[in-house]
């Protein structure tokens, strides 16, 4: 496995959305997702409108829709869960193709799939168009405590280093014939995890030493650079539209 974890879903190219300020995009995405979650599930047209909004934003961002669809697969386990709902739900049922399905179950399956998919789609658009350093800057601008953004930045910086070590240890272990089939044979996995922790911790200590050597005294520098344009209007538009849909949906219920 050679994929870099340190970049997440980010796509390195310069679309319109890539240039918008990260903190505005974060607030916009959160607002959009909140509006979707707050929409009553019976007003299906509202979710269709939300879907059109995400798709339009993705097209504006220059994201191939096929790629967006592929990244939605992360949700599959929940879709499986949702599909169980009509079979385990209570209350009145409808007969479909000879099977009794719970009406409430069908509604909840629909809404889990619809809301979950829209949520993942919105997050994927954010993650694909915002580089990790920008995301961290964005959090700083939103007044998230520096210690927290710094921990996040450290984690992302060392994700590939640590997962790379894990991978090499696993390959080395299996190269020596370790193939456990049962839980009680997994002692090597535990030993490997232990060794990984010791390595990670000692690296943390060395990183701290190297920081101290460069004059670190406990105050981390802000990663903020010069002023980015804010673009609040552009970033909040999808959230505003989705909120309008949600309000309309409540009205016409």
């Amino acid at each position: 496995m050679n994929n870099a974890h340190g970049t997440g879903l980010y796509m390195d190219h310069t679309g319109r959305l890539h240039r918008l300020a990260a903190h505005s995009k974060l607030v916009g995405t959160l607002g959009f997702v909140a509006a979707v979650v707050a929409t009553p599930r019976e007003q299906w047209w509202s979710f269709v409108a939300d879907g059109v909004i995400v798709a339009m934003v993705a097209v504006l961002a220059g994201l191939p829709l096929g790629l967006l669809a592929r990244r939605l697969t992360i949700e599959l386990p929940f879709i499986a869960f949702a599909l169980l709902m009509p079979f385990v739900g209570n209350g009145p049922t409808v007969r479909l193709a000879g099977v009794n399905l719970s009406q409430a179950g069908l509604w909840s399956a629909w809404s889990i799939v619809a809301k979950g998919t829209l949520g993942v789609a919105a997050t994927v658009v954010l993650a694909s168009t915002t580089a990790v350093p920008q995301l961290i800057t964005g959090f700083e601008r939103l007044r998230v405590p520096r210690a927290l953004t710094a921990i996040g930045a450290f984690m992302i910086r060392y994700l590939d280093v640590v997962t790379g070590e894990l991978q090499r240890m696993r390959v080395a272990r299996e190269s020596r014939g370790d193939r456990a089939r049962w839980l009680w044979q997994a002692k090597a996995v535990g030993a490997g995890a232990g060794a990984l922790f010791v390595r990670s911790y000692e690296r943390g200590e060395r990183v701290f030493l190297a920081m101290e050597s460069r004059g670190y005294t406990g105050t981390l520098p802000s990663v903020r650079r010069g002023d980015e344009p804010r673009h609040w209007a552009a970033c909040l538009a999808p959230a505003a539209l989705a909120s309008a849909c949600a309000i309309a949906a409540w009205r016409f219920r």
């Binding site: 974890h5 210690a147 710094a150 921990i151 996040g152 930045a153 450290f154 984690m155 910086r157 060392y158 994700l159 280093v161 640590v162 997962t163 070590e165 894990l166 456990a180 089939r181 049962w182 839980l183 044979q185 997994a186 996995v189 490997g192 995890a193 990984l196 922790f197 990670s200 911790y201 690296r203 943390g204 200590e205 990183v207 701290f208 920081m211 981390l220």
Partner: peptide
């Protein structure tokens, strides 16, 4: 800060660690 950050990276990696049940 660096220690908690590295611990987070470790937890993330440990969650990728598969073990046989």
């Amino acid at each position: 800060v660096p220690l908690v950050g590295l611990t987070s990276a470790f937890v993330f990696a440990a969650q990728m660690l598969n073990f046989p049940v």
